[in-house]
Amino acid sequence: MMTLFLEKALRFFEPVGSFVLMVSRGFRFMFSRFRIGDTLIQMDRIGVGSIPIVFLASIFAGLDMALQFEVVMAPYGAKALLGKVVTTSIIRDMGPVLASLVMSARVTAGIASELGMMNSTQQIDALRVMGVDPLDRLVAPRLAAGLVMMPILSIVGDFLALLAGLGISVAVGHVPAPLFWSGVRDALTAQNLTNAFLKPLFFGFILTSIGCHYGMRTSGGAYEVGRSTTKAVVAAAVWILISNFLISKLLINIWGLSA
């Protein structure tokens, strides 16, 4: 009875254990033997390849946000605050979350299906037989690329969203551009900037590590590869949303409500 329960518990936690193991060994390889060439290739595929979609999403988010806040704030005569409000919500939340969710569809799915296919065609066994640890050759460069590229993409995306917000505020809300900009400057507080940098860093890790986790555990044919890819994307999206909330809460606890 007790052993049955233990066995069930172990089976339930086994994926967690193997995830932790994969990530910790992946990081160890990243620091002990950094594969610059493979990492650059992944940075190109993960990051550069995602530029159009991330930037497009950011621009439309900025446009929409300025539009909606203008509607809410105009009756209170609070248009002067538009710059600050738009900036705050973009760099603290909308920017990183939106960019990462868009990326998860591309990056997590790409990694999970590529590694899954390599696994099911025995390419990963072949690596092991040839004395190369797949965590070193495949996982570490992807983790590194995600950690570097996601903050860069997200921060440039934030900037584009702000420009789009400025455009709408000036054109539709008739807010003078300098007034909007001074709001933006007010919003660039230490807490907001920490959000803007820390969140995408963490989301970049979630995107790539979850893709690797599901990919490395795929066995079977095309059907299994498809299934684990879908699961990976869903898991990445859920963990991005959960950790977004937790990081927000953590940073608010650290800084208090001083904005």
Binding site: M118, T121, Q122, Q123, D125, A126, L127, V129
Partner: peptide, 12 residues
């Protein structure tokens, strides 16, 4: 040891 996998397992 040389190992030739079922289907080859070449790195594609």
């Amino acid at each position: 040891i040389g190992m030739v996998f079922q289907e080859g397992a070449l790195f594609d």
